[in-house]
Design a protein around this nucleic acid. Structure first.
Lengths: 143, 143
DNA sequence: CTTGTATTGAAAATCATTTTCAATTAAAAT
DNA sequence: ATTTTAATTGAAAATGATTTTCAATACAAG
């Protein structure tokens, strides 16, 4: 899919879910849908203001919330405790992070559901969320 | 190892690393070394004050920092973004954390290696480390 | 027992995030 | 096209977690 189509698609999904398509949302969607790395709310705010100067940080948070609801973005937990947001691909995705340059790759993780279910049975827990991250060195950093 | 020995051991390690053994630290170590679930700083503060009423929250944070340095506790990232601290165990363990009470179960390092190798081939990354946490509600918190 | 320094806790600062609320604006209804 | 109506917005203030500052305290070395 072309990036312009992706943006259009996200906006359509917002609308189809009963949300309005507004200028601030357009600016945020444009950034997040096309980003090649995970963005923090403040980064989105700063970049977004270049596109739409009246943008408020609160709107960034609220829009990310909506996009997460719709499964369009996924939250990334940084070791420092603050959150970043990444475009979600289909299905549940896990992260592979380069320990040298910080680049983030995603990979499919359906594999974990059987494990989660096995652990549920063994422990009696109701597993709600799982979080898997791999750390490694990306091909570019090998050189 | 007896819990009393564990506490003594932690305090000795603090001292051996050039840190002083103080009343506040004793109270904090007593709590964290013997806890059966991951504790948040504020929980440690509240419980710790029963043992040593003049305890300050700042000291809790600082002591946890020291204990983490020494590899005695490990930090656990909650989905809500705040941190909990857990006595570090030997070997590679994965965590299942109750999002209500912070109780932690451990399950054996069920082989993620095949997955890691598959991801390596797909991405060209050299995977060095993996980190898996499950979040859920424990049986006790269902009631 | 004295002394030097690590440690402490209260208060204030910082940082991420949420809430409140009056003004604005998208989109449905006319 | 214009009106209407409710969703949305952004500024400011509130919140919650964590960090910094700094003068007072207390551990442990001498």
């Amino acid at each position: 899919m072309q990036t312009s189509d992706l943006i259009k698609n996200w906006l359509e999904q917002l609308q189809a879910s009963g949300y309005r398509v507004t200028e601030p949302r357009r600016a945020i969607v444009e950034l997040v849908a096309t980003a090649d790395h995970a963005l923090s709310p403040i980064e989105i705010y700063d970049s977004g203001r270049r596109e739409y100067p009246r943008l408020g940080l609160v709107t960034v948070y609220r829009t990310l919330e909506r996009l997460e609801e719709l499964g369009l973005v996924q939250r990334v937990h940084s070791p420092d405790g603050c959150h970043r947001y990444l475009r979600a691909f289909e299905g549940h995705q896990h992260l592979l992070i380069c320990t040298r340059c910080g680049r983030v790759e995603m990979f499919a993780g359906d594999d974990l559901d059987p494990l989660a279910r096995r652990v549920e049975q063994a422990t009696g827990y109701q597993v709600e969320e799982h979080w898997l991250q791999l750390f490694g060195v990306c091909p570019l950093c090998h050189a």
